[in-house]
Design a binder for these strands. Structure first.
Lengths: 216, 216
DNA sequence: ACCTGAACACCGTTCAAGT
DNA sequence: ACCTGAACACCGTTCAAGT
């Protein structure tokens, strides 16, 4: 029985991430936590990037997504999956940055894609529309969480301080909502924008194909 | 006349970024390019992060955004500004990652916010809706470009290889459009989703307030 | 098969001392 | 005011050698 396993390294890496942040997460420090030499890690993971990618996949482990659902509730299912994604990223320090830009075709990530695509197909989208809508939704959540976590580490009124109201009247006028810390509401707002856009495409399609429209 | 200036450091830093990527962009290597000792950089920038933040701001310098415009063309103006943002980030290796999560209340970044908010206010959005829509749009573009640049560095059919069609039927069914390299079209698709969502909010508001609706 | 020990070629940052 | 030189406390990765 080896002292080290991929799973043990992974869980310790996520714990260390929460402790010190992504910048200070190093192979040497991780090895220290595991009471081994740094080189030992390279027997299990070929390099640091492969470990980070595994961390990204592991973050999604606790999302507890259940696959199918009632077709007419597709919208709620999408919202639920995206909120689960956000929670999973927020659950770890710098989770957004660690996850961003790691295309991982592994179980947890694929399961998220499966749930989102299932709901979008149930909504009536074609293959391309479903795929591209899915990407758009996920890209938004990733961008959102990266900004959200970056904003935590900054004094809330960096923008408020001195802002040239002559040059940037619009920015100055909306600085309140712009710096709102109600990220839950802001996230829902953005997701609803995308879902409304998706629904509108659905409506205009069914309208032009002679079928019933959904709204008055 | 000092040998080093903030501007010269900045421009050399962006050039070095393009050469070696964000991972290999180090203060020592940058100092080498500038024929100075590493310590000299710290007289101009207090630390590496402040330089990276300045790089993010500098990336937006060439976007050439013109402020006002015809109110009824608000949608085209938003699209133009977002495309300019994407081009600016794509213009540098790892531009998305460098820019992501750097809230910079400086001229170029504020100018982008000003243009976007101006167009959204022209569309008829209230302060909060304009601010949050602006954030959503920018967050999406950032998330999109980070994923786009990450995808460049990966063989295009990593997903195609072996994918359990039993477990992930929806993912398997849309793998074509999912891995589409037509990022221009995918970006426009996502932006249009958000803009359609924004327009829908506008319509339902004007409808409930007794005014005219825009579409039949 | 799995890990140690030690090395290689680096890092960001500080700061006395020079000009 | 601006930069050098040198140091401090680190990095990721490799690999012979041990068990």
């Amino acid at each position: 029985m080896p002292r080290l396993t991929k799973a043990r390294i992974l869980s310790e890496a996520l714990a260390l991430l929460d402790e010190v942040g992504s910048e200070a997460l190093t192979m040497r420090r991780l090895a220290d936590q595991l009471d081994v030499q740094a080189g030992a890690l390279y027997w299990h993971y070929p390099n640091k990037q492969s470990l980070v990618t595994a961390m990204a996949e592991e973050m999604l482990a606790d999302t507890a997504l259940h696959g199918a659902g009632e077709p007419e509730k597709w919208r709620a299912r999408v919202v639920e999956a995206l909120m689960a994604l956000r929670r999973a990223l927020l659950a770890h320090r710098d989770g957004g940055r660690v996850f961003a830009g790691t295309f991982v075709p592994e179980p947890n990530t694929l399961a998220l894609g499966e749930v989102l695509l299932g709901a979008l197909r149930d909504a009536g989208l074609g293959k391309k529309e479903a795929a591209w809508s899915c990407s758009s939704l996920v890209d938004f959540v990733i961008g959102f969480v990266v900004e959200e976590q970056a904003a935590q580490g900054i004094e809330p009124d960096l923008l408020t301080s001195q802002l040239d109201r002559e040059k940037y009247p619009n920015v100055a006028a909306v600085k309140g909502p712009f710096t709102s810390q109600d990220f839950d509401a802001r996230m829902k707002f953005g997701v609803n924008l995308l879902l409304d856009g998706i629904e509108r495409g659905l409506e205009s399609r069914s309208a032009s194909s002679g079928s019933r429209t959904r709204r008055a």
